[in-house]
Write a protein that binds this DNA or RNA. Structure first.
Length: 559
RNA sequence: UGGGGUGUAGCCAAGUGGUAAGGCAACGGGUUUUGAUCCCGUCAUUCGCAGGUUCGAUCCCUGCCACCCCAGCCA
């Protein structure tokens, strides 16, 4: 396995670097900031980090990058832990926080000051920006850049002791104000934030910046490969500078890969926050979101997400993955793991005129057509039934092999019925179908040679129950909603539709599967957040592939 | 106009001096009591463009073009 061909450039690098070092371990980390919920893009990173370590008999840390108390909260820590475990990954005893290292980080800053490589600047934020220069013009040195190590030390300690207000002083690395890389123009290391931290409370009023804290946390934990996204590529010289100058025992290597973008979706914590604050969606776990919690609520199994992450690969190229790829992974996983049931989303009443009034015939149905181990269940056939309204057409096109006036169709696991009469209300809407059934065509008996082109699903009126089902479509109308300056304008008004469905009784029974396929319509799951004792609410996870819909669409576009 | 990256099909993505894997999508066909699943087939004379080196270039060299990221006391 170790010698099998690496799947991507990162695994290639690791393979090349470690193949001749039998003692070398691969240690990775997933470093979320606890300021929001995780989404599919994070899943890509989680899978990469845990898988790469695992493939090399290494370990992975779950480390929270909690260096900005203004934006972070424990509720995000809890949700992130839940999401990572739900995906199936185990950090064991390696749950850490950048804040665990605040004391070490503080000492490291002092070391830089003593080496003459850091200074306390008294410029304010605006002045610092002006001094930084622009992309094409070099910056200029701060007038405070040449304070002595002694003075810097004194000032830094006073910063720590809370003697200055926010923004009054700042600790900066002394690197090169003329560097073409903006990150090297004396970046901030420590800023004053008189704000309680969710873990360290009021112990500190100075907090380290990302570049400093992240690089050193990696080094402290013995991370060998620090895998991050492309936007940090030009932070790498700074990452290396900190590690070099602080002279840490371990020297991690940062490697960047491209972040995941999904077409017609949002993978930006900041923008997701906006949707939630403006109540455009139901919360971080809204099933229309590609957040981990949203996908979980929607019914996406973790294995589908893992499979998806494997399929999309790891490269440095900008990408926009189509939703179809994710949905394909979901269908593939659910197809092999869920039982089949019947339910009617848009019920049309059918009366079987030649079936006895109060008779209940119990039929056997397979729980999975290809997996007999999933067993059988009983379904009840009665005089009054419901079928899907779209399975009947008065003037049906030739290729429509469902029910039409005078036509026949098979009811799945039951009989062939014939439409004898169409009953309409005063305004011409179809209210009910009067049908007859052929007793010789009972499913599985082989008594009759009669063949019909179509098989449709149904439920018994008596032996079904009402349920609300939520049907989802893409949340956005546009390919890249993140590029829009008015997010609300990009929202698809039809992203959520609610229908009152009739589901076969077995779904309401004790031990009913929480996730299942409704034959011919899709995969569904119980929404445990919205359901209660009185009312069951289901989410449509994903539709089945529908080649009939394609034919219809093609016919429509041809006129 | 500074620096850092990236260009292989509609979307992803292997490949690497010897004649373009695979997946998703799409399109044809077969099986089917889910118009599902499954199966089989089609889908890049060409790798951003232009030159050059070579018997031979997607791969090496030169030039150009396009796109992404960077001017937080965010991560």
């Amino acid at each position: 396995m170790k010698d099998s061909k690496p799947r991507d450039f990162i695994r290639q690098i690791i393979h090349d670097e470690t193949k001749n070092q039998d003692s070398r371990k691969v240690i990775t980390r997933f470093p979320p900031e606890p300021n929001g919920f995780l989404h599919i893009g994070h899943a890509k990173s989680i899978c990469l980090n845990f898988a790469v370590a695992n493939e090399n008999k290494g370990k992975t840390f779950l480390r929270f990058d909690d260096t900005n108390p203004l934006k972070e909260d424990d509720i995000y820590v809890q949700s992130i832990k839940e999401d990572v475990s739900w995906l199936g990954f185990d950090w064991e005893d390696r749950l850490t926080f950048a804040s665990d290292y605040f004391e070490n980080l503080y000492q490291a800053a002092i070391k830089l000051i003593n080496k003459g490589l850091a200074y306390v600047d008294s410029l304010n934020a605006n002045e610092i920006r002006e001094y930084r220069g622009t992309l094409t013009e070099p910056g200029k040195d701060s007038p405070y850049r040449n304070r002595s190590p002694e003075e810097n030390l004194e000032l830094f300690k006073r910063m720590k002791n809370g003697e200055f207000s926010d923004g009054e002083m700042i600790l900066r690395a002394k690197i090169d104000m003329k560097s073409p890389n903006m990150n090297m123009r004396d970046p901030a290391i420590y800023r004053i934030r008189k704000h309680a931290h969710q873990r360290t409370a009021d112990k500190w009023c100075i907090y380290p910046m990302y570049d400093f804290a992240h690089a050193l946390s990696d080094a402290y934990e013995g991370i060998t490969y620090s895998l991050c996204t492309l936007e940090f590529e030009d932070h790498r010289p700074l990452y290396n500078w900190f590690i070099e100058q602080v002279e840490t025992e371990h020297r991690p290597r940062q490697i960047e890969f491209s972040r995941l973008n999904m077409a017609y979706a949002l993978t930006s914590k900041r923008k997701l926050h906006g949707l939630i604050i403006n109540k455009i969606v139901d919360g971080w776990d809204d099933p229309r979101l590609v957040t981990i919690s949203g996908m979980r609520r929607r019914g996406y199994p973790p294995n589908a997400i893992l499979d998806f992450c494997e399929r999309i690969g790891i490269t440095k190229k900008d990408n926009y993955i189509e939703m179809g790829v994710l949905e394909n992974s979901v269908r593939e996983e659910l197809g092999d793991t869920t039982q089949r049931r019947m339910g009617v989303l848009d019920p049309l009443k059918v009366t079987i005129q030649n079936f006895e009034n109060d008779k209940v015939e119990v039929l056997e149905a397979q729980n999975h057509p290809q997996i007999p181990e999933f067993g059988m269940r009983k379904i009840s056939f009665t005089k009054e039934l419901y079928i899907e309204r779209s399975d009947f057409k008065e003037d049906a096109p030739r290729k429509f092999h469902r029910l039409k006036p005078g036509g026949e169709v098979r009811l799945r696991y039951a009989y062939i019925i014939k439409c004898e009469e169409v009953i309409k209300d005063s305004s011409g809407n179809i209210e009910e179908l009067i049908c007859s059934y052929d007793p010789d065509t009972k499913s599985g008996t082989g008594k009759s040679d009669k063949k019909v082109k179509g098989t449709i699903h149904w439920v018994s009126a008596e032996h079904s129950f009402d349920a609300e089902i939520r049907l989802y479509d893409r949340l956005f109308k546009v390919h890249n909603p993140a590029a829009s300056d008015d997010l609300e304008k990009t929202i698809n008004p039809d992203s959520l539709k609610t229908v009152q469905a009739k589901l076969e009784d077995s779904l309401g029974a004790e031990g009913a599967p929480p996730s299942f396929q409704l034959e011919r319509t899709g995969y569904f799951c119980l929404d445990t957040k919205l359901s209660n004792e009185k009312k069951r609410i289901y989410n449509r996870t994903v539709t089945l592939r529908d080649s009939w819909a394609k034919i219809e669409k093609a016919a429509m576009s041809q006129g």
